[in-house]
Every structure is written in structure tokens, then in C-alpha cells.
Simulated assay, not measured.
Amino acid sequence: MTTLRHEFYETDDKLTISVFDKGADPEQVSVKFEPRRLSYKNGEKELVLEPLKGQIDPEASGYTVGKVKVEIRLVKMAQGRWVSLVGDSPDPMTTTVIPQASSSTTTTTRKPKKNWEGITTEILSAEKEVTSDQDPNAGGDATVNSFFQKLYSEADEDTKRAMLKSYQESGGTTLSTNWSEVGKGHVEVKPPQGSEWKKWGA
């Protein structure tokens, strides 16, 4: 028997073996596929590969007879690289190369998570609170609102009614705490000097 020279290349789902059998007659060539075994025969020439490194699908596998070589296509049952054609135990290459490749991939693609809570705290602590002594406009709406909330919460019923009535009827341009004055009639709109009062949508 003559053992034929052969080589192979693979993808994750297929493996192709080139058997160098020049001038092989397609009528004489016989290829037998089994889940973990492959046998090639052409007269006195023979090639047997077992046990195959992984399991193949005999039904989906096939071969083509050419002038210089015979190409045998094996369809893998499970995706992945074999590295070698035969063998029971894992090839050393699969245990050294593949984990390194996967770890380097995860290292390059992993993005550090941002600690938004820490960033917010950092920004807030970095911002120095400006007092009204340093800037007359410091505090803005928040300070004004808290002042009126405090004033309203500590006021008696007449003062509260005066504040609500004056604010609502004047369209937010007047705020009075004097019920004896506000209770007499409708509170007029008094826009700030140099501005003109218009109803919403007008």
C-alpha cells in the first residue's frame, strides 16, 4: 500500500483535505465518510485518517477528483478549529493560542464603565457655592423660591390667602401679604418697568 501525501486548510465550519494523487481516475477513487473516520482508496493507494480530531457530518461532506489532486470537503458537526486532522486529546495549539487570542480581544474591546455617581459628586464638590455677598444674583430662582416657601409655610391664613390671590390675579407680577388690602378687589397686573404684559398665546 502507498500512503498518499496530503495537506489541509480549515474554517470554523469546514475542513478541506488535498490528497496529491496525480491522474486519479474518478471511477477508481473511493472515499468513505464516517463521524470520526475518513478513508480514501485508489487502487493500491490509500489514506486513512482516524480518529478525526472532531466529528463530521458524513451526509454533508463530499469530494472532487482533479488532474493533480483530490479535494475532500469535511463539514464539521461543531464549529471551531481543529488545528490537526487526527487526535483524541486537544492539540497544544488550541490551549495556548486560542485563549490568548480571546483574552487579547476582550482586553481591546472592553470599555471601562463610567462611575457617574462619583463624577457627579466630584463636580458638585468642585463647584464653590457663591454667596449673595460675592454676587447679588447668587442663588437665583432656587433661593427666591425657598424664601417664599418658608414665608408661606410660616404665615397665618389671611397672609396665605393674600399671597395666593395677589399672585394669581396679577399674573405673577405682584405678591402681597396684606389681606385687608388684597381682599377689597381685583389685583392689577403690574409688569416690571420697561416691559409689556401680554396674555399667553396673544
Rank of each mutant, 00 (worst) to 15 (best):
L15N: 01
L15K: 14
L15Q: 03
L15P: 02
T16N: 14
T16A: 00
T16W: 09
I17T: 11
I17V: 12
S18R: 14
S18M: 09
V19G: 13
D21E: 10
D21R: 02
K22Q: 15
G23I: 00
G23Y: 11
G23P: 04
A24R: 01
A24L: 05
D25Y: 11
D25V: 12
D25G: 11
P26L: 02
P26F: 00
E27W: 06
Q28C: 08
Q28A: 04
V29F: 03
V29P: 14
V29Q: 06
V29A: 09
V29C: 12
S30F: 10
S30P: 01
V31S: 15
V31N: 15
K32Y: 01
F33M: 15
F33E: 06
E34T: 03
P35I: 12
P35W: 08
P35R: 13
P35E: 11
P35Q: 14
R36W: 00
R36G: 00
R37W: 10
L38F: 03
S39W: 01
S39R: 15
Y40N: 05
Y40E: 02
Y40H: 03
Y40I: 02
Y40L: 06
Y40S: 02
K41A: 13
K41S: 09
K41C: 05
K41M: 12
N42D: 13
N42Q: 09
N42S: 14
G43A: 13
G43M: 12
E44A: 11
E44R: 07
K45V: 05
K45A: 11
K45W: 12
E46A: 02
L47D: 15
V48P: 09
V48W: 05
L49A: 03
L49I: 00
L49H: 00
L49Q: 03
P51I: 09
P51K: 14
L52G: 05
K53P: 13
K53W: 10
G54I: 03
Q55D: 04
D57M: 12
D57G: 02
D57R: 10
P58I: 00
E59D: 11
E59W: 10
A60S: 08
S61D: 07
G62T: 07
G62Y: 07
Y63C: 03
Y63Q: 06
